[in-house]
Amino acid sequence: MVNNCLYWLLCRKFAQRLIRKVDNPKMIKKSGFKLMPILILMLMGGGIIMLISASKDMSTYSTFQQVKRSGETAKVVGVLAKDKPMYYNAEENPNLFRFYMTDQDGEIHEVTLNAPKPQDFELSEQVVATGSFTGDEFVASSILMKCPSKYKNEEVLVRSNM
């Protein structure tokens, strides 16, 4: 409550000062002061900064080798290695699924996903795994799989943590 009263006082003083300043047409005229262009410039500046920092969020499509070398998180595009074993045992751990994936360079690596095994994963045509290396283990935070179900191309996204 005390805090709120303080806010109230401070804000009132500040607002009064601001209004007095803005309200004084002489001040504006004298300086040739135009607010709109300045505000737009500020917005544009902020916008550009946001755009630049947004473009830093962009990731890249990568291979296991590149991800391992860079030590960063990236998206690996590949296919499920169907001749290798898949591990999922709900009884032991419902949030652990392991499979082998062949990346675009043909390298086969095991992928760990902390989520249940997606339905019809065996049938997937393409897998995009987003993740990074922990030691020698590629841990995916999400996988996107493309499935040719009998008649429709369906895609399924699985995230380990939402």
């Binding site: 709900a90 009884e91 032991e92 751990n93 419902p94 949030n95 652990l96 902390n114 989520a115 249940p116 841990v139 380990s160 943590n161 939402m162």
Partner: peptide
């Protein structure tokens, strides 16, 4: 049930 099984990572959102 999951204690000690997942090291460091989140425990996961699904229960058996």
């Amino acid at each position: 049930a999951q204690e000690g099984m997942v090291d460091g990572l989140d425990a996961g959102n699904n229960a058996f």
